[in-house]
């Protein structure tokens, strides 16, 4: 299926919506900054109020950019998982990839708790963020590989899903052991990390995240054809000359890069990965990944930008952890969509 005019119109509409959501996210917050002032910050910085400039360019813009990256990455990662396992409930966190990433971060934050390691990490400076991203990716990647190794023996999707959840549980248990033996300060840091946040990623870190997510997305779009073929069953895919093992490897790499890097920088962000692919299929009524992948990017970004806007409503001085908001908005959305259709289609 190629991009129909119908799809093109909808994609363009979503793109406009995304721009609006982006502007909304930039213009709302605890401190009131008028739209005129925001325009001035971008187009004539010299005349803008320095505080407003700092808040827009230093705080809100990086956060909105992180929301765009995380929104794209998580929803495409979720789409890939749902197709690979042909299961509507699959998403990176459900199959233990996010837990694996958390385990990697916990290894750095908690087990690296021996003072010497912490000092070493401190000395590394910016490379400290590389260390965390690497640890999270190794954690996510190895968990996914384990899931896939087991998936070769288990043909049944439901069994596969259960196995994935079990692996996630084991991983979380390992983290709990670390937490139990770590001192309260480190555990608190880790718990805060676990709440998820779009606000802590700036400057060089944002650049690192952008590079990794873009690579993950490129790999994902290259795999669109494989994903389409996989939908028809592995035997069919093989008859088309596609090596199922190779396809899996590519998809795992892409998802691990996306989920691993986003989890490393923002903490685990739930529900975007599972909710957005369903919304995309519902809106575009297609199974073609060449449409679903950009659609997921747009919808995921819009959803996460809106979640971020709601997380820091004007009039309050605190910001709710993004993870709470995505679940609060994502879960009802999925329920509403399920109520409006009789079957989860396109499998």
């Amino acid at each position: 299926m190629t991009a129909t005019p119908f799809s093109k119109v909808r994609l363009t509409g979503l793109l406009l919506l995304l721009l609006l959501a982006f502007l909304l996210d930039l213009s709302t917050g605890t401190v009131h900054i008028s739209l005129k002032e925001i325009l001035r910050v971008f187009f004539s910085p010299a005349t803008a109020d320095p505080i407003g400039q700092f808040i827009i360019k230093g705080i809100r813009l990086p956060k909105a950019c992180t929301a765009v990256l995380a929104g794209c990455g998580l929803s495409v990662g979720g789409l890939q998982m749902q197709t690979l396992f042909r299961n509507p409930l699959a998403d990176p966190s459900i199959l233990g990839v996010t837990a694996g990433a958390s385990l990697g971060v916990a290894a750095v934050m908690l087990a690296g708790g021996s003072m010497a390691t912490l000092y070493a990490i401190k000395e590394l400076g910016v490379s400290g963020s590389w260390l965390i991203i690497a640890a999270a990716c190794v954690g996510a990647g190895s968990t996914m590989l384990l899931v896939l190794l087991l998936s070769r023996r288990l043909r049944d999707n439901v069994m596969m899903l259960i196995v994935g959840i079990m692996i996630g549980s084991i991983t979380l248990a390992l983290i709990s052991i670390w937490q139990y033996f770590s001192n309260p300060e480190q555990v608190k840091d880790y718990l805060l990390w676990n709440f998820g946040s779009l606000g802590g990623v700036t400057g060089g870190q944002l650049l690192i995240l952008a590079v990794v997510v873009v690579i993950g997305l490129i790999v994902a779009s290259l795999s669109a054809k494989m994903l389409d073929a996989l939908l028809l069953g592995e035997n069919y895919a093989r008859s088309m000359g596609l090596s199922a093992r190779k396809a899996r490897a590519v998809i795992i790499c892409s998802t691990s890069l996306l989920a691993g890097s986003i989890t490393a920088f923002c903490g685990p962000i739930g529900f975007i990965g599972i909710a957005v692919p369903h919304i995309a299929r519902f809106l575009f009524n297609t199974a073609s990944h060449r449409i679903l992948i950009p659609a997921c990017c747009l919808i995921g970004t819009i959803l996460l930008l809106l979640c971020d806007t709601f997380a820091q409503l004007p009039g309050t001085q605190t910001v709710l952890p993004i993870n709470i908001i995505t679940s609060l908005i994502g879960a009802p959305l999925v329920v509403i969509l399920l109520l409006r259709q009789t079957t989860v289609h396109s499998w």
């Binding site: 605890t30 700092f54 808040i55 705080i59 809100r60 820091q312 605190t318």
Partner: peptide
């Protein structure tokens, strides 16, 4: 008080002193 960065920013940008920054040893850190 759990405040978001944006709430603190207007005060932080102009504050004369920044105290209790934790166990850091240098501005570089």
């Amino acid at each position: 008080l759990a405040l978001n960065f944006e709430t603190v920013a207007p005060v932080a940008l102009t504050a004369d002193f920044w105290l209790d920054v934790g166990d850091v040893d240098s501005k570089k850190e």
